[in-house]
Design a protein around this nucleic acid. Structure first.
Ligand SMILES: [Mn+2]
Ligand SMILES: [Mn+2]
Ligand SMILES: [Mn+2]
Ligand SMILES: [Mn+2]
Lengths: 252, 252
DNA sequence: TTTAAGATTTAGTCATGCCTAAACTTATAG
DNA sequence: CTATAAGTTTAGGCATGACTAAATCTTAAA
């Protein structure tokens, strides 16, 4: 049931592939491999190849595909991916703010509905919310135009010990992890500092105004992204300086 | 993407077939022919046969199907049809009351989304609306249990001339017709009386408190259902006494 | 440079749902 | 009691989007 918006019609599957390519390729538009897509989408690599060939072959192609070397989105493909991402995040914000969903419940519902709401409903929801900038997990909501400001976010596990940071966003994929974060007071906007010398299976952190510290599992820490803290320390003092910029905020 | 609720999983197509059977068979559960379904769903009769055979064959069957003699819903099929109908009408009420949709815009959006909202979202929407009894067009919303009170509604075109009536519901299928009704002040709850002796291509009616009368096209009149008016006249004084009870309120 | 492991693509299937054309029932008029 | 029209089902296909198994590239180690 395609007739949903204006542009080239897309199916739910196509939307999912485009979103996955945007997420895995990052805003930097890097090439994405079939295998990575297969894993992310939960389908076999052979299925991915088939779909990529179709997306690359259609009238206005959604991807540029080079055999054995992965794909990247075309302008049209990126536009549609950002459109779906906007739907997802607006829906999460709406479900959370207007329909009493907790932040660990919004993702699944939004993931399903994002493919089916019309541009009109998107607009009405955005208007009702006052054009919000972020979803309940701190992720930035693309504008109608597709504009999506980049933010120098870094995974907490890559952040330097002892340097004050503020949580910018958290992964919305694991409801149990989100509930655990709620219990610990971890949410976007909260200050956090990693205690020096704790970078093994778990790390100790000081959260918000509290004087005690708690131990975070690597699992939990890997779902938290941060930006420089209020005491304005330099932002590139990263723990593992190499390949530290691959955080990219877990797209959806 | 089935995993939406509890019961036997259904696809969007299956939902549409079940809804169509409920609508065409009426609450009286009459058998529905392949042809009627084909026309209603906009597919070929051969496609209908194929689907009916599948629906009748599955583990807990959704329909009882007798070759060459039409189908009727089983309890499971009726339950799912009413569930989807509840989604549709709740969504219409929600879009209308909370998201500034006009009553001629709600149908298409609801028709698409009804298949994809979770039971949780259904509940939250119902709660937010205070468990409404009708949608913006006056149609009754089935309860969560599937209960749907019957109402002795009759098409305006079958109602006796000169007998006061009240609009109970209007068809939501034609946006242009709905806008025309708005212009004329025709909506659920409004009193209406057909002037005697006007039962041809169009009929003159007196609307609400107004003293003048207007001419309604058969098109418009066929989309309006009424119940006995405030001055309590008998309800079975129907114009065309035979086959007058087939009104059944245009389900979705 | 060679080669094997790993990644990727091709080939051949399958399930859904729809379509057309042809065969077949049922119901109705003579 | 038939013949014919109308309604319905069967047969054979097509498009999507996934899967398995087998073939083919790439790449990196030897
Ligand atoms: Mn999705
Ligand atoms: Mn989110
Ligand atoms: Mn539908
Ligand atoms: Mn309605």
């Amino acid at each position: 049931m395609p007739p949903r918006n204006h542009g080239p019609y897309t199916t739910e599957s196509v939307d999912d592939y485009l979103k996955a390519i945007l997420e895995l390729g990052g805003l930097a538009e890097e090439r994405v491999t079939s295998n990575a897509l297969a894993q992310h989408l939960g389908v076999r690599a052979a299925s991915v190849t088939g779909m990529l060939q179709k997306l690359a072959a259609q009238k206005p192609p959604f991807v540029k595909y080079e055999k054995h070397h992965g794909v990247r989105l075309t302008a049209a493909g990126k536009m549609r991916a950002l459109e779906v991402l906007r739907h997802h995040r607006l829906l999460e914000r709406f479900l959370h703010d207007f329909l009493d969903y907790s932040w660990d419940e919004v993702h699944d519902e939004a993931e399903r509905l994002e493919h089916f709401i019309s541009e009109q409903l998107e607009d009405r929801i955005a208007a009702k919310l006052g054009d919000p900038e972020t979803d309940p997990h701190g992720h930035l909501i693309p504008e109608r135009s597709g504009a999506l400001p980049a933010r120098e976010e870094v995974l907490l596990s890559k952040w330097a010990c002892g340097v004050a940071a503020v949580i910018s966003s958290v992964s919305d994929r694991d409801p149990a992890a989100l509930r655990e974060m709620t219990r610990l007071g971890l949410k976007p906007g909260v200050a956090i500092t990693v205690e020096t010398g704790t970078r093994n299976a778990s790390l100790r952190v000081r959260i918000g105004e509290r004087s005690d510290s708690v131990r975070l599992s690597q699992m939990l820490a890997s779902g938290i992204s941060v930006i420089a803290g209020p005491n304005g320390r330099a932002r590139n003092l990263l723990a593992d300086s190499h390949e530290a910029n691959q955080a990219e905020s877990r797209l959806p």
